[in-house]
Design a protein around this nucleic acid. Structure first.
Length: 205
DNA sequence: AACACGATGGACT
DNA sequence: GTCCATCGTGTTA
């Protein structure tokens, strides 16, 4: 069934691995269900694009916690970005950012929250995903599947993936800024940016 | 205590 | 392409 939960072991893996595994999964909060179409891996203390690059702070604490918990980053004071903490160990301090989704259920609620925008503009950006799901700062640090919280469901299989550089991290060193750690469902219209995205050879997940 | 700025989005030229 | 809303956080003093 597409709406099965995923076991804790699913999250206990390296961020780039988890990013790939998250494509096609469904996020559910209340009556809203969204299929994940685009993600970015933030790979921990060795990744100069990752918030944990300069160590643990109160803000980045969730990434030092258990895999599968949420890291909700507030950008520019208003946009809430949903991250899922990766593993394999508590000290790994890595996460996957959900950058874009496609609607599955609850479209009237999404439309009300997003201003009834038609087409991919509805959900093609991390701040838009947070807004559509009704995420706020109180979700930070919470586990998936908490009552009233966010769920991750099995969703549908992904057949082809496109990869490219991550967006909005010009502050990172060139090797990390240009690394192909942004993943999207190939040919999906529900993608935030096309620049640098290229379809890769099909591989099992 | 002050300050610079961001894993963005929307409006506008 | 440009401009800028809006505020928590980290850094510096």
């Amino acid at each position: 069934m597409t709406d099965e939960r995923l076991p804790a072991s699913f999250f206990r893996r390296e961020a780039l691995d988890l990013a790939r595994a998250l494509l096609g999964r469904w996020l559910r909060h209340g009556e809203v269900e969204l299929a994940i179409t685009e993600v970015e891996a933030y790979r921990g203390p060795t990744d100069s694009g990752c918030h944990t690059f300069r160590g643990r702070t109160p803000r980045t604490a969730p990434m030092f916690g258990p895999p599968g918990h949420l890291y909700v980053y507030t950008c520019y004071g208003l946009h809430r970005m949903l991250n899922i903490v990766a593993g394999p160990h508590d000290g790994a301090a890595a996460a996957v950012l959900v950058r874009a989704c496609a609607p599955v259920a609850g479209l009237p609620i999404v439309g009300a929250r997003r201003g009834r925008i038609a087409g991919p503009g509805l959900l093609d950006g991390p701040g838009k995903v947070g807004q559509a799901l009704g995420i706020d700062g109180t979700f930070n640090h919470h586990a998936l599947y908490e009552p009233g919280g966010v769920e991750l469901l099995r969703g549908e299989p992904v057949h082809a993936v496109a990869v490219g550089p991550r967006i909005g991290i010009d502050y990172a060193s060139p090797e990390h800024r240009d690394a192909p750690w942004r993943l999207a469902i190939a040919d999906s219209p529900w993608v935030s940016h096309r620049r640098g995205l290229r379809r890769e050879v099909e591989q099992p997940r």
